[in-house]
Every structure is written in C-alpha cells, then in structure tokens.
Design a protein around this nucleic acid. Structure first.
Length: 644
DNA sequence: CTAGGGTTAG
C-alpha cells in the first residue's frame, strides 16, 4: 500500500476548495493508466478536485482507479465525497467508498468511520451502520451518539436507551448531543426522570438543545407543569426552546397558555418563524379565535409557500367555521399534500358542506393523490352528514381494496354515526360487534348519540354502561343514564348512578360559551353573572324568547335523552351559555356579521331550536362549534341537519 | 463527524 507523501497532504490542506480549477478532467487518469509506475499524485489531485467540485461520477471513477492501485486520499477529502453521495442519495457509491476505505485490512480514523456510519444512517441503512459500528476499534462519543440518534429517529426506543447504557459501561461520557438524541427515545416516565437527573448532575441542562428536547418529551407525556418548569429555569433561550414550549401547550389543547407564552416570546424580542406560527395557529384553532387567526395569517404571508404552515392555516379557518377563508388559502397553495386535502375535505364535511367535500375527494383522486386513513375518516363523515348511507357503506367496505387502508376505530365511529342518523340502530350495533379493534368510549358514544336522537332507551342504556366502563369519569353519560332511568321510573337504578357519581367524585362541567368581539374573548358560564352586561343580556334574551314564541318556539323541557352534557337545571334552560353568548353577539356585532360561538359542551335541543328560529328572525348567520361538531344556522335551518 | 421546535381524525 502506497501512502500519500506529506507534501501532497499538505497541499490538500493548504489549498482551499474554491481555488481548485473548475475544468478538471480525467486526462491524468488516462495517462496514469498507461504508466502506472509513476507516483499517482496527479490522480489524487484530480480525485480531490472532483470531490470538492461535487463531481460525483468523476470522483468515483478516480476512486475506482485509486482502489485498484491501493492508493488512499486523506480523510477530509473522503468526507467531502461522502457528503456528495448523501446529497445525491448515491447509496451504491457510498458502499463502494466503504469497501475502498477498509481495503487491505486498513482501518480509517475514527472520525472518518463516524462519517461513514452517519452516511448509512442517513440512507436509512441501519443494519449497515450498526455493522460498521460493531467492527470499529475506537468508538467515541460521536460514534455512540450517531447510533443513538439513528435509533431514536427510527423509533427503536429500547435500542437507543440500551446504547446509552452500553456507552456508559464502556466508559464513554455522553455529551449534550447524546442526551438530546436519547431524550427523543424516552418512552417511559421512569427513564425520563432518571435521564433528567443525569442531565442536571453533569450540568447539561443549560444546553438549549437538551432543554428543548426535555420540554418536548415532557409535553409528549402531557406533563406540562414539568415542561414549563424546565422552560422557566432557562437563563438564556433561543427560538427553538420557545417554540417547543408553545408547541407543547398547543398540542395538549391548552391554547390559552400557548398564546400567553407566544406573547411573552414576542416581548422577549424573538421573531416567530414558521414552526412557531404553526403552533400559534393550532392554538387559535383550538380556541376558535378567528380574528386572532387572521392576524397570524398576516405574518404567515412572509412564509408564503410553507406547506405545513399553510395546512395549519387551512385547518384554523375550517375549525373557526370560515370556509370562505379556508378555500381561499387552499386555492392559493401551490404545493398541497394529503394533509391539505384531508383537512379541506374534513373541514367542508364538518361545516355541513358534504357534497363539496365529496366532490373535492373526487378531484383529489383524479389528481392521483393517494388518500390516507384520515382522508377516509373525512369522506365517511361527509357521507354520514349528507345522509348518503349507501355511498358511505360503499366507501367503508371498499376502502381496503381501493386505498389499502384497514378500517379503524374512527371509520367505525363514522359508520355508526351514519347508520345511527339513518335510524338503523341495530345495524350500527352489529357493526360494533364485528369490529376488529376493541370499541372504545368514543365508539360507544357515537351509538349512544344515535340512541338519543332516535329515543331508543334499551340500546342507550347498554351503550352508556359501556362508556362508563371504559371512561368512568364521563360526567355527561352518568347524567344521561340517570335521566333515562328516572324517565322509566327505575328509581333504584337512579340512586345507583348517583351513588357511583358521588363515590367517584364526578362533577359536571358547567356549560361555557365563548365569543370573540373586537379581539376580546367573552366567556359565558351557566349561572355566572359576572359579565358586565349580563343584566341587559338577560333582558334582551327574555324579549327574544317572547318574540320567538310568537313564531312557534316552544321551550323544550324534555331533558331525557336530550341533555347529555350537563346543563340540566330546568330553571336555567333559558340561560344556557350559548343563548347568552348569542344575544351578546347580536348586541355587539354589526348587522350582517356572522356570530361565531365556541362551546365546551354539546348544544342542547332547546338551544338548537332557539338558534334556528333566531337566525331566521334576525336574518343572521350563527355558527356554533361544540367539542365535535359545527352548526351553521341560517334561515331557520342548521347545517347539521338536526343530527348531532 | 453526533443533537432540539410545526399540519389532518379522535
């Protein structure tokens, strides 16, 4: 094996890549072929040039010649070549370099082997990476961290944690790179606590990367107090740390806190980027803050074609009930992925535009975009909403062969809704029984809902019992069950349910509605009189009820199978939070402007009827979003078709 | 040479 003279090596090091000739050719290689006794400095020279010029084909040609003649270049040049392979995703070339580097029993420097391992990792060839790793003599922090990071990214969490242990056992000290990688693989709280302790002990908790990783893991585990603690301990932070904590709250449906943190971030002088804005939009989405969302949209324009950000924007408009805005965004998007389409399809369907949703699904298929699990949920939801029972059944039964998607819980949920809406309760029940996955509380709630609408007491009791078995904290279901029993004079059962509620400490969540008026959120809670204009609102409400009774409004006092979610006191029926919010909206928003309300509980039948008639009488569009559905009231009708 | 933050349903 010939080695490169120190002169040549020195030349490579002192010569910056930019000064290399851009017109390198293979003439020297040709001449070298003829007289291969000569020292191949010109070959190495060419190889180096090709590597730095990212001329992969020629560099590889030169490499093959070097290989034949057992010539090696320096590590830096090889690392350039590997970078080049990575950029072009030239896996086969990478493998050739690997062979060359280890030829004739040679062992490259640890630094170079690490690069090689990393190459295999980036190509997704974990096996090869592991193989190189296993055979290398001196594994340093970087070698270990590369493997740990690879396993974390591949979600092989056990493997990643196992490697951390092995590494410690070999006496290699982890650094901040190691910890931020391994934190991603924390799938047990026990591990997380242990790791967090180690990190604090060696003082790595001040590293921004480690910190954001910690925040991220705690958020993923829903331990936001801990995430916030890690965040607040920070002396210095960067944008990513801020984004992590904001995302944590946004993803755990605490939009309020997410927005508070966002304000703090801006006050601290940080400028939001795509990632941050995406989380902020998600927070707006959760809180149905259309006006704030619109403000954020202005900042989004700077990152015009960021796909994820646009998807979040799309969803925000859909969930805030403004399909005009959503559609405008959708049309303007140059790049759209399955998520964009799914968001729009589901958004249309949820807001009562089922036909449009299905049309959009057709155009998506025409464009050759493959629907995924979520897309089909939206499609089935659309069928259910439009009462297209046969279409829904068709898609449901053929989704496996058409789109290679196995029906899951959400699909069954939609089908139960669909059959339930059509009054085909026994078929819905059959469907639950033939589910491959275990039905969960959500599934049974879909059935219970159908029973509620079609007043089927027996099946309702069955469904309610299943829900309470799976989710013993579901206050609404206890109340409903108790009401059913009361209505059928089963007083012992009523007492039993009440006892269970007391025993388990179940408290009903009070109904609450929110409305945004000139960037201010006004909250109305049942029985709460703290709103400054509450007296006037009540007076107006009573007048409206009186007027509506003149056009056929009869307050619905039948609570059985009706008041599912909690506002059951007869006296306060007329003061349900959404009625207060609507009246306030009528009082404060200009004529012609849509009144948008968000509710924490499902709307009751009385409020639904009230709003339908009110929308007609006052010539207003009223949109109410409850935890699962949307109600667009206009001209005495609701987009939900009276099924919710 | 190794590390951190974002989107659809439920």
């Amino acid at each position: 094996m010939k080695t490169i003279s120190s002169k040549v090596v020195k030349k490579f090091i002192t010569k910056p890549p930019s000064s290399l000739s851009s017109t390198a050719s293979l003439t020297s290689i040709a001449s070298f072929n003829v007289s291969n006794n000569a020292f191949p400095s010109s070959l190495l020279d060419d190889f180096t040039k090709f590597c730095y010029q990212r001329d992969l084909p020629r560099a590889m040609q030169a490499l093959e010649l070097m290989h034949t003649h057992c010539i090696r270049a320096d590590c830096i040049t090889y690392s350039e070549l590997i970078k080049c392979c990575l950029a072009r995703r030239a896996i086969q070339h990478g493998k050739r370099i690997h062979v060359h580097l280890f030829s004739n029993g040679h062992v490259p420097k640890t630094f170079l082997i690490n690069i090689l391992i990393n190459m295999y990792v980036k190509f997704g060839l974990l096996h090869d990476a592991q193989d190189v790793f296993d055979k290398m003599p001196d594994r340093n922090v970087v070698s270990w961290t590369t493997m740990i990071s690879a396993y974390s990214a591949a979600k092989l969490n056990d493997k990643a944690l196992e490697f951390l242990v092995l590494m410690l056992r070999e006496g290699v000290r982890p650094n901040m790179f190691t910890y931020s990688s391994v934190l991603r693989a924390c799938d047990g709280l026990f591990n997380l606590r242990q790791l967090h302790c180690c990190i604090i002990k060696i003082g790595l908790d001040s590293d921004v990367f480690v910190r954001s990783a910690l925040i991220d893991v705690y958020s993923r585990w829903g331990e936001l107090e801990n995430a916030l603690r890690v965040f607040d301990e920070m002396a210095t932070g960067d944008l990513v740390v801020w984004s992590s904590i904001i995302a944590g709250f946004a993803q755990n449906s605490d939009g309020d806190e997410a927005l508070r943190l966002f304000k703090r971030m801006k006050r601290a002088g940080f400028l939001a980027q795509q990632t941050t804005l995406t989380s902020v939009l998600r927070a707006c989405t959760g809180l149905a803050l259309l006006e704030l969302g619109r403000q954020v949209h202005v900042h989004v324009l700077k990152y015009d074609q960021d796909l994820i950000l646009n998807n979040a924007l799309l969803d925000m408009y859909c969930k805030c009930g403004s399909l005009e805005d959503a559609n405008a965004v959708f049309v303007r998007m140059v790049e759209k992925d399955v998520i964009s389409w799914s968001t729009m399809i589901a958004g249309l369907a949820q807001n009562g535009y089922s036909k449009e949703a299905l049309k959009l699904f057709e155009s998506m298929k025409v464009l050759g975009i493959k629907p995924n699990y979520v897309t089909i949920v939206g499609v089935l939801f659309a069928c259910s909403h439009a009462g297209l029972v046969e279409e829904g059944l068709y898609y449901f039964h053929s989704m496996k062969e058409l789109f290679e998607i196995d029906p899951g819980r959400e699909h069954y949920g939609c089908m139960i809704d669909l059959l339930g809406r059509a009054g085909r309760l026994s078929e819905a029940l059959d469907l639950i029984n033939e589910m491959e996955c275990e039905p969960d509380a959500v599934t049974w709630r879909a059935l219970l809902n159908a029973c509620r609408v079609h007043r089927n007491v027996d099946v309702a009791i069955h469904a309610a019992k299943q829900i309470l078995r799976l989710d013993p904290q579901d206050a609404g279901t206890y109340v409903l069950l108790s009401n059913i029993y009361a209505n059928t004079q089963r007083w012992n059962d009523v007492a039993e349910v009440r006892r269970a509620m007391t025993y388990r400490g179940i408290k009903k969540e009070p109904g609450c509605s929110w409305i945004e008026v000139s960037k201010q959120i006004h909250a109305f809670i049942l029985g709460d009189r703290s709103h400054p204009q509450i007296s006037e609102i009540n007076i107006q409400l009573n007048q409206l009820i009186y007027k509506l009774m003149g056009v056929g409004y009869v307050p619905d006092t039948n609570f059985v199978l009706q008041d599912l979610e909690g506002e059951q006191m007869q006296d306060s029926l007329r003061y349900h939070s959404e009625k207060l919010a609507i009246v306030f909206g009528l009082m404060s928003l200009p004529r012609g402007q849509t009144i948008r309300i968000r509710k924490n509980l499902r709307i009751c039948g009385d409020c639904h009827l009230f709003t339908k008639l009110l929308a007609k009488m006052e010539q207003r569009i009223i949109v109410i979003r409850d935890p699962v559905r949307y109600h667009h009231f206009q001209d005495g009708l609701c987009s939900c078709g009276d099924f919710w």
